[in-house]
């Protein structure tokens, strides 16, 4: 029997910022087309861990990893891996909406332009499809040339999601995507996550446990750089096996 290949996998992953040991021996495997939520108190390493999947930590001086991160069974820290190719496969949405100071249209097709795609019809079609997937099309379809900075925060965040979807990744990393948004925008983003998991493997970092409960299939609890518990969301919230998890989700610390 061949070993099962997971969409994303970490094997004995250790990460350091200089001398600081940020992630300690993490083993985790994530299913394809499921939503996995990372929860834990501030500074527990969940965002650091999320950013190892598209190697956004590479920019931080003194950051290094030991162990393996596998995407479809391939080690993404292998020397042969090209980081720009990896990031086309693993998209990311950040905590604060970060649209480029360009038009809505140019924001969405930015990733395509980077790849040298100039065909107007292709760009137009991808922009429309991506904006529709991000549930933003109906709100902006008449103003595609308007500056993206003129959109509301919630619209900006959906634009950032559309931008990530435009280059057809298979994984979507979301770093507290709704923490800077109002409740209505947050609800829209959560709804969107529900929709998107039919086609994408989603990993979301969140501070909001209700949110984790609502949007995710699996939840991983991190504490002090360790992965304490990883199981189906329902199971983790109703019958946590570790007392630290229980203390955290019942609000005794964090």
């Amino acid at each position: 029997m061949s070993k099962k290949v997971y969409k994303l996998e970490a094997k004995n992953l250790n990460a350091y910022y200089g001398n600081f040991h940020a992630l300690k021996g993490i083993d985790i495997a994530m299913e394809e087309k499921a939503v996995t939520a990372f929860i834990g108190p501030s500074g527990c390493g969940k965002s650091t861990f999320l950013r190892t999947f598209n190697r956004m930590n590479d920019f931080i001086e003194g950051f290094r990893t030991e162990g393996d991160i596998l995407l479809d069974g391939r080690d993404i820290y292998d020397k042969k891996i090209r980081v720009d190719e990896l990031r086309k496969e693993v998209g990311m949405v950040f905590q604060k909406p970060n649209p480029f100071p360009k038009s809505i249209f140019e924001n969405v097709v930015y990733g395509l332009r980077l790849q040298g795609i100039k065909n107007k019809a292709v760009l137009q079609e991808t922009a429309e499809k991506s904006l529709q997937r991000a549930a933003l099309w109906s709100e902006v379809k008449d103003n595609l040339n308007k500056s993206a900075l003129a959109l509301s925060g919630g619209q900006q965040q959906r634009l950032c999601i559309a931008r990530a979807l435009a280059i057809s990744p298979s994984v979507l990393l979301m770093d507290e995507p709704a923490s800077a948004l109002d409740p209505i925008s947050t609800a829209k983003i959560e709804e969107l996550i529900h929709e998107l998991k039919n086609d994408y493997t989603i990993v979301i970092v969140t501070h909001n446990m209700q949110q984790a409960g609502r949007v995710s299939d699996y939840t991983a609890f991190f504490y002090m750089g360790e992965l304490v518990e990883h199981s189906k969301t329902k199971a983790l919230f109703t019958s946590p096996s570790d007392t630290r998890t229980q203390n955290y989700i019942t609000g005794r610390f964090g």
Binding site: R87, G91, F94, K96, L114, A164
Partner: peptide, 12 residues
């Protein structure tokens, strides 16, 4: 954040 957004889309 703007640079991060660009890198995350595969920009060199």
């Amino acid at each position: 954040s703007v640079r991060d957004g660009s890198y995350a889309l595969g920009a060199s």
